[in-house]
């Protein structure tokens, strides 16, 4: 199997689905000749033409809303926002329009659109270009929320997202774009809503998302030397959330640490913790712990930004504190 970056995997998923299905097209800011803000759509403009890879004005509301309108009219748009932070100006079109059409119209509408958005800190982009906002989207019935951590998952999940008949929010971490991994040439789909155990273990479950999956795997290596065995569970999708896999793991290890880059307070970990507390409380030998960003906007200056981003060291500390 060929090694590819997370970015190449996404690009390949887009190309393969566009090749296969004429109704798939891309729209967003600078996604054409420019190849997208981070380069995810590179080469697709030359290959598929401006009719299918559309540079929009800087108009996030219409990017999201036109995707919803086109999806409701039978197409499968893949919209890109340059940064997840920009969803603020377009949120109505996502959560009041795209997400609710099916339910409020009595099950008649289908809104098969994907909204790809890079998120996360680590490139010195400061408060308005670095957030992790997955918890916002998890709160909206009607959306699906995909947050892949590896190149393999990125490709298979994007293919699934494009084929899905619901609006899918697809969250990519900027610092993962260059991460390499095994990615098959051929097209394959990974079911949305299926967690993946990234490392099996027996002592503590770490439920980690996006870039924190890599931090959790790093922490597992460190702790293994001390004879502590971590099981790293990557939900891959936060909506629907594969609580079954998480609960099974906790029932086995009796301890849970949740790791994400979003702010901890009312973050995605709060829901995961609540699910486990409600359904597997008796299996827990220690309080549930969250490793997450502190409650402040993402700072600019490199040392402050680094202090903001949780990492493997924080997970190691959290696991040790359990014992």
């Amino acid at each position: 199997m060929a090694k590819k970056t997370y970015l190449q995997a996404l690009n390949e998923a887009l190309a393969q689905e566009m090749e296969k299905d004429q109704s798939v097209f891309i729209l967003g800011e600078d996604v054409g000749q420019f190849g997208g803000c981070f380069g995810v759509t590179q080469g697709l403009f030359d290959r598929f033409g401006e009719g299918r890879v559309m540079d929009t004005p800087i108009t996030e509301s219409v990017i999201v809303g036109a995707a919803a309108g086109a999806a409701a009219s039978g197409l499968r748009p893949v919209a890109e926002l340059m940064f997840v932070d920009f969803i603020g100006v377009a949120l109505d079109q996502l959560f009041n329009q795209a997400a609710k059409m099916r339910y409020m119209f009595g099950g008649k509408a289908k809104v098969p659109m994907v909204l790809r958005m890079p998120q996360g800190a680590g490139i010195g982009a400061a408060a308005q270009h670095s957030q992790s906002l997955e918890a916002w989207f998890m709160h909206i019935p009607g959306l699906k929320v995909a947050i892949p951590s590896t190149p393999y998952d990125a490709k298979g999940m994007l293919i699934s997202a494009i084929r899905d008949d619901n609006p899918v929010v697809f969250l990519e971490h900027k610092l993962l774009y260059g991460v390499e991994g095994d990615v098959p040439e051929e097209s394959y789909a990974i079911e949305l809503g299926k967690a993946d155990i990234k490392r099996e273990g027996t002592d503590v479950t770490v439920v980690a998302t996006s870039r924190m999956v890599h931090s959790a795997l790093e922490a597992a290596e460190i702790l293994a030397k001390d004879g502590i065995s971590l099981e790293v569970v990557d939900p891959r999708c936060l909506l629907p959330l594969d609580t079954g896999t998480i609960l099974d793991s906790v029932r086995k290890t009796h301890a849970l640490v949740i790791a994400h880059e979003a702010v901890g307070f009312a973050g995605p970990g709060a829901e995961i913790a609540a699910q486990v507390a409600e359904k597997a409380f008796d299996y827990l030998d220690a309080p549930i712990t969250r490793v997450a960003a502190p409650f402040c906007p993402v700072p600019f200056s490199p040392p402050l930004e680094q202090a903001f981003i949780p990492g493997a060291g924080d997970i190691v500390k959290a696991v040790r504190a359990l014992r």
Binding site: A68, G69, A72, D92, Q97
Partner: peptide
């Protein structure tokens, strides 16, 4: 394509429907 509870909500959707056409 729907009535709409949000004032100004329909513009982007109509633009998308026209784009689809």
């Amino acid at each position: 394509l729907g009535a709409n509870g949000i004032v100004g909500g329909g513009g982007p959707l109509a633009t998308g429907a026209a784009l689809a056409a």
